[in-house]
Simulated scan of single mutants.
Amino acid sequence: MADLVSVLQQTGALSSIAQQLGVDEKTAASGAGALLPAILGGFKKQAGGGGGGLEGLAGVLGGLGGGGLLDAVLAPGATPADQGNDVLGQIFGSKDVSRTVAGQAANSTGLDSGLLKKMLPLLAMAVAGYMAQQGGKSGANAGGGGLGGMLGQVLGGLTGGGKAASQGGLGGLASMLDLDGDGNPLDDIIGMAGKLGGR
């Protein structure tokens, strides 16, 4: 997840999140590194499950606020976490998953789970907004297919999935995370957060 953490640093999102939570950027980066696998896993589930593939995910991102989500995180003042909670609700489907992800990240980093619970919606907004902005730049004149394809490239590039183009229509998303394929995204997402403790 180092690539995505550095992208969030470059956009200024990580600094903005750290400021809002009253922590230094190093602490925010540590928390982000622990939370991002689950967030990206949620986007993968959205694209790969009954979510209509990458074009469906592109539509979801647009409906949630698109690139404006990242702008909201970067704007001065408090970020409206409700929008981030909407993103989490869409990709996780349950507040229980969000709580579990925050708890697992707290165990692996030693950070306070309350802090991580506050960070989770802000991170989800930043990632969703970044993907929507990158997708919009590439696919603005190409319709939904262009945006969907770009989302696959963005997600694949963020996670180092260079050989993703041939992975069955999911683009970069297919090689993003190696989920166990048992049809239960909840334990996959919890497992992803848990695996961080063994690094």
Rank of each mutant, 00 (worst) to 15 (best):
G114A: 13
G62N: 15
L61A: 10
V154E: 13
S94K: 14
G63Y: 14
G135W: 08
L123W: 12
G93A: 07
A58S: 15
Q167A: 12
Q167I: 08
A75I: 14
G171R: 03
I189M: 12
I17G: 03
I91E: 06
A142F: 06
A132F: 01
G181N: 14
G149D: 10
L14F: 08
A2Y: 06
G77I: 08
T100A: 15
Y130Q: 05
S166A: 14
G157V: 01
G50L: 06
P185C: 02
G89N: 13
V97P: 04
G181D: 08
G103N: 13
A47Y: 05
G148L: 07
Q167M: 10
T79G: 01
G12L: 07
Q83N: 14
G49Q: 10
Q134L: 07
L122Y: 00
A18I: 10
G139C: 04
G198Y: 09
G139L: 05
M131P: 01
A106H: 07
G161Y: 02
A142M: 13
G62S: 15
A132M: 11
D82G: 15
L158N: 07
M131F: 08
N107Y: 06
G114H: 11
G41R: 02
I189N: 02
S15W: 02
D96G: 14
A174W: 01
Q19S: 15
L111F: 11
L74V: 02
A174V: 00
